[in-house]
């Protein structure tokens, strides 16, 4: 697997997420990599942060970044975290790598008041065109070849929203970005699904 660079510059969803988080909030970042997002949130929003990672190299990198990091496997749940321990639980560009999609979403809303989820949209027109041309898409937001991809779930904006509805999750806010990180605005849901490369959601649950 080729690791992706997680610098702030090429992570436009970081700014969207930062905008949704209040200073002083407690934030848990799942699959936090080297802790770049948490570091960004700590530096720019003064949050208190913890991250979860499975990969040894990322554990070391996050510790070097001075981030609180807990080594663990998201597929096995978030057992070390208490109910409603965080204001926000972030899953940035990681949902598509998790097999137990419903499980992780429910766990996020168990340990946090709000879930923030970003993921690459497989219905993005360039991805669709690539498939129509006979090849699996490789792009800024889907940077892997099919044979070395960590992604195990392939879904679109509309798929995700259908799942949220089915699970009774409330979409509080949504931000759709194109390949260059620019916000995509469109009143037609199907067009949005076609124009967005990356989607960022803010979810809560009826309590």
């Amino acid at each position: 697997m080729t690791p992706i660079m997680t610098t702030i510059q090429n992570r436009p969803d970081f700014d969207v997420i930062a905008g949704w988080i209040e200073p002083g909030h407690k934030v848990l970042d799942l699959g936090c990599g080297d802790g770049s997002l948490l570091k960004h949130l700590i530096d720019s929003r003064g949050v208190r942060g913890w991250g979860v990672e499975i990969d040894d190299a990322n554990i070391l990198a996050a510790i070097k970044n001075g981030i609180n990091i807990i080594q663990g496997n998201l597929e096995k749940g978030l057992e070390v975290f208490a109910d409603q321990a965080f204001d926000h639980v972030v899953l940035s560009r990681t949902l598509q790598t998790v097999r137990h999609t419903e499980g992780i979403l429910l766990e996020m809303l168990r340990v946090g008041r709000e879930a923030v989820v970003s993921f690459p949209n497989f219905a993005y027109w360039k991805n669709l065109r690539s498939v129509l041309d006979g090849r699996m898409p490789v792009s800024e937001d889907l940077p892997y070849q099919w044979y070395d991809s960590p992604n195990v779930r392939f879904f679109t904006l509309l798929d995700f929203e259908a799942l949220c509805q089915q699970m009774g999750l409330i979409i509080r806010e949504r931000s759709v970005l194109d390949e260059h990180g620019q916000t995509v605005d469109n009143d037609d849901e199907r067009d949005l699904n076609f124009l967005g490369s990356l989607a960022v959601y803010r979810l809560t649950q009826q309590r």
Partner: peptide, 8 residues
């Protein structure tokens, strides 16, 4: 809410 890191 303590600062803690955990490596396995």
């Amino acid at each position: 809410g303590r600062n803690v890191s955990y490596a396995e």
